[in-house]
Structure formats: C-alpha cells, structure tokens
Design a protein around this nucleic acid. Structure first.
Length: 426
RNA sequence: GGAGGAGUGGCUGAGCGGUUUAAGGCGCCGGUCUCGAAAACCGGUUAGGGAGCAAUCCCUUCGUGAGUUCAAAUCUCACCUCCUCCGCCA
C-alpha cells in the first residue's frame, strides 16, 4: 500500500511502476474514485456536524415532549445521511480494492525486463569444481544414496510430496544449526515462528489479495504461511515502536507451505519446488530512510553470501528484473547457486526491500526524534531454505565413485564427512 | 468441545443513553518556586483525516464489524483477543 497523497501527487510514477512491473493498473480509475470518495466524505462530514449540533440542542432541552418534537425534524437529515453513507461505503470499497492493487515503485537501479531471464548479474563468487565425469542430478543422487523417497512421498502426501531419509535428515538439521550459529554473535533475534497465520497478515505482507491461490487455507480460516516473513511482519503489527529500538532484526525458522498453483509444468521432479519445506528467514524493520534500506539490503544479502560461501557453493547475485518483481517490492536480489547437472545457476535465496509498503498495511510505526509517528521500512532475505539447498550441496560435492562429500563447515554437526552409495535397500 | 468473566488514551482506572471537549492517578512535556535539583503548585498531553497563510474549526476514534436511536464508550447481534473452570490432548 502506498500513501494516497503520494499517489495523487505522482500518478506518473505509479503509471511507470505498473508499466515496468508489467502490471495492468489504471491510476486514473483510482484517482477518480479517490476524488469521488473525498467529495462524498466531505458531504457526510458536513451532515454529521449538522446532526451533532442539533443533537446537542436536543440534549439541552429539559422537557421530553420538546425533545421528541425536535427529534422528529432530524429524521429527514438522518435519512439523507444514511443514503450518503451507503454511497460512501460503495465507493470506499472500490477505492480500497484499487489501493490494494497499486504497485510499489521499483528502484531506478532495477533492470527493466519481463521475466527471470532479464535479471542482471551483479557479482559472482567461486568457481564450479572441475568434474571430470558426467555429474548426476540431485534426483539420482537422492536415490542412489538413499536420501529421499519421492514415490512414497507422492503416495502419502500427493504431488510434490517427499520423505527425506538418513544422511539428508542429519544434513538438514546440521544446516539449521549452522545458520543459527552463524548469527549467534549478531544482533538478529532468533525466533521459531508460527506457520498458521490469520488472513490480515497475508494482506499486510502484500501476498493478498493477489496471490490467494498460492496459499493453503484451513477450515478454521487461518492460513498456512508460505514464509516466516508473514508471521514476522505480523509480529509488530499495530504497534508504535520507539526510534531507539530500531532497527529490529530477526532470524526466524518456520515450515513453509506453497500450493504452487501456477507452476504445474515446472520442476515437477525432485525437491526443487515443493509444497512443504523449511526456511530460516532474516527480517529487518528500520527507520523510514531509503539509504538505510539500501544499506540493510546489502547487509541481508551479505549475511546469506557468507553462509553460501562457508558451504563452498559457487553462486551469483542477480538483480531481479522489474517484471519479475512482486507488487510489494522495491528491489530484489536473488542468490543463485551453481547446479552442475543443469550447468546453470538457480535461485536459492531472495533478498528484498519494500520501503513502507508492508508496514503501512500492517500499521507498524515508530515515533521519531521529533515525536512524529512514521511507518517503519521493512526488508527480508532467506538465510537458508531446505531441502532446496541440498540439491546444490549434493551435486557440487559429488565424487566419481558416486559418494558425496559434506562441506567442511558442516562436518562438526553431521559427525560424518561422506555420504556413500548403498547397493541394497537399507 | 462446554460454562463463566473481561477488553476504555503511553500505563492504571472510573463512566454503563445526552455539559464526556472520556473523571481521578501514574508517566511525559512546559512553567512557578530554587544557586541547582527534589517536593509542592499551575498548565499541557490518544491517534487518523479534512478546511485554512494562520489563529482556529469540522469529522472519525473506548477490541473489530453491523444494528437500534435525534443522540452510543454506554443498548442489541456477530466476530476477535485475553482470563478462570470442566473435558480432550503431544
């Protein structure tokens, strides 16, 4: 959600934002709804003022008969008022609907383009290991090393279902432990976040109303969160923080659920795209300052780079193209790790900032030094997502004999340094 | 799942149809007093929107939404949250 005053004063910026994000949004429709709404609201306020004054006069009358007589005269006013109010509710509903559709404005540095293919490489780290044999893909490694059961996963859980087994389990636990340890000395507060969230949080974070079909809904009308960003943004909703408490930094683990409604044809095999996974997410609430957002965006991205570097995975940072940005986003960096079997980089982390788009919806404010209340700015980034990151680890660390090395940094957690192929079902 | 009770400003807490522009207290800000401070005393102090150069004025806001009424913090209904008890439960 953007400030209506800003929209009134900068309709061209909104038009341009919609064009860059490849969204169909009609600013003029909003502006005319806005004008209409404002006009009716002013009329209602005048009528209410009139009614309030008349009511006060009635209250001053001591005689009940006099009161009744005076009240009679007000019924007509009341009728006009309620008609106006009905009109207002209608236009206000229209107005809100449009307001929820207004895209946030992409930063000028965001590369223009339609899809993922138009993203721009910012920097690169590491060299893919020389593999002098035909590298197996993660699906065949999972199978030969007995690390997952995808058939039974589908039988029990349905399409995209999976069981992780044996060393893959220990490796997952090791990754989570390692990441929380990496942040131990930092001022990121560790959190285990709920996955069940109320609808308002999904609106607040900018996932609703557009992406309803991507989210699971329970029979109690609470939803299964697609990321800890959602409960974490809801954490401070409706609060007025003190400027001295900012920035707030969180590191949250949660299960994540995604319907993947629009991606039936894509990544249908393996564990790249799942309905159910686990993620540790970083999130920052900061003061309302663009330069701060830029600074913290780099910090969040840098934190994740350190993790991927420590794991020894070659990666690159790309700035997502304008058309690939979510409605709520100002700018997004993806970390893409090297996948040997595909000979390409694929997304493992996503680091974004939003200015006050989310905090305005969630009403997360702070009192600045002058005592004025302002909306915080928000940012978030993946710290690690499992099992997806296992794909990169398995493929990059595979050896000619079919075994897989464990990244050195994880060995103190896993207590083993090699995953060996099995030749019979364990 | 069942039975009760409760949600009021930054906090505490009164009000239960109309001088409520929400009492009182705490906190905070300003002032008087003081060499300075504390105490005491005086004044100010919810938030959002709108009109105006400004002084100021208007509307909304007592968990949320709908309703009754000329008028709702106050009455009715639904929902949300918290507390107590019973049941179930890792």
């Amino acid at each position: 959600m953007l400030d209506i005053k800003f929209i009134r004063e900068n309709p061209d910026l909104i038009r341009q934002a919609a064009r860059r994000k490849r969204l169909d949004f009609n600013v003029d429709q909003l502006l005319s709804a806005d004008e209409n709404r404002k006009k009716i609201l002013q009329e209602i306020e005048e009528l209410r003022a009139k009614q309030n004054r008349a009511s006060e006069r009635i209250a001053a009358l001591k005689n009940e008969e006099e009161q009744d007589a005076a009240a009679k005269d007000l019924r007509e006013l009341k009728e006009i008022l309620s008609k106006k109010e009905y009109e207002y509710r209608k236009i206000d509903g229209e107005w809100s609907k449009l307001m929820f559709d207004v895209p946030n404005i992409p930063d000028p540095s965001v590369p223009d383009g339609e899809t993922e293919r138009d993203s721009k490489e910012i920097r690169k780290w590491g060299e893919p290991k020389k593999i002098d044999f035909e590298p197996k893909d993660h699906i065949s490694l999972l199978s030969s090393l007995n690390l997952a059961d995808l058939q039974r996963g589908a039988k029990v859980s349905g399409f995209r279902g999976y069981f992780l087994k044996n060393e893959a389990v220990i490796l997952s636990l090791a990754l989570w432990q390692f990441v929380f340890d990496e942040f131990r000395a930092s001022n990121y507060e560790p959190i285990l976040a709920p996955a069940l969230v109320r609808e308002e949080n999904l609106f607040g974070s900018g996932h609703f109303p557009q992406s309803r079909e991507d989210v699971y809904k329970t029979q109690d009308d609470v939803y299964l969160s697609a990321t800890a960003e959602i409960p974490l943004m809801g954490f401070h909703s409706g609060e007025v923080l003190d400027e001295t408490d900012l920035p707030k930094k969180y590191l949250a683990f949660s299960p994540c659920f995604r319907r993947e409604a629009g991606s039936y044809g894509r990544d249908t095999k393996g564990i790249y795209r799942l309905h159910e996974f686990f993620k540790i997410e970083q999130l920052i609430l900061s003061v309302a300052d663009h330069q701060d957002s830029v600074k913290f965006h780099e910090e969040l991205t840098g934190n994740s780079e350190k993790i991927v570097q420590a794991l020894g995975l070659p990666y690159r940072i790309v700035a997502a193209a304008s058309g690939d940005l979510g409605r709520a986003h100002v700018k997004t960096y993806d970390i893409e790790v090297w996948i040997p079997s595909e000979r390409r980089f694929r997304e493992s982390h996503s680091s974004s900032y939003y200015h006050d788009f989310q905090t305005r919806r969630l009403n997360i404010r702070y009192r600045d030094k002058t005592g004025k209340s302002r909306f915080c700015y928000s940012l978030n980034n993946t710290a690690i997502a499992t099992p997806r990151i296992l794909i990169a680890i398995l493929e990059n660390f595979q050896r000619a004999d079919g075994s897989v090395e464990i990244p050195e940094i994880l060995q103190k957690y896993t207590k083993f340094n090699l995953i060996k192929p099995v030749f019979s079902d364990r």
